[in-house]
Amino acid sequence: MQPPLDDRALVAAAQAGDRAALDQLIRTHYDRIYAVCRRITGHDSDAADAAQEALIAVVRGLPRFDGRSAFSTWVYRIATNASLDELRRRRRRPMSVVRDDDRPDHEHVDPVAHRPFEQIAEREVLEAALRDLPDDFRIPVVLRDVADLDYQEIADTLDVPLGTVKSRIARGRGMLGAALERHGNQPPDSRRPTEAP
């Protein structure tokens, strides 16, 4: 059994017309793409739409991808853009439209539904606070905490100075943290410990 190819090899193969390589490449990154879209748009169905648009854009742009940045960075940048487009489309929709998210979705089983209520409540508070966060703050935070891009990659993606990225991430996290604290959550000791640099 051959070991899985890394992104660089998969990209090269896909650029050469290898369909299987492309399939593997986009499946490898789909979850993170979806996560970025989900956090930026705030809704499952919008995230799915944005992720699909991002994948199509990735395919179209693949011949021009030159590898100067990591494939993941490039892909998350596209996912961010697709999510923003989806947000703009959503804001133009009539408010009376019934969203897919409002309907039962039998194929979407929330794997965290069994968690203690406090954790679920915390997640809901965080999601609501994230949705209320202005784009300027929400997107850098998502790119840092969900896409795991470093500050410079985020600055390049958003075309803002590095210091601005740092500032917006700090402010964004601060606003989200304040929302959690208002909800009455204390930082639990048992959760993942802070990673000291």
């Binding site: 986009i26 979806y34 996560a35 994948l55 929330d110 794997p111 905490d145 604290e181 639990p188 959760r191």
Partner: peptide, 27 residues
């Protein structure tokens, strides 16, 4: 608190299978 925010944000429900397969098929 920031770590709590980070962990919460990273805790995204997995993508539903249907949209995932539709997305891959479209690509």
């Amino acid at each position: 608190t920031f770590a709590q925010v980070r962990d919460g944000l990273a805790d995204v429900p997995p993508a539903p299978v249907g949209p995932r397969e539709r997305g891959v098929a479209a690509a």
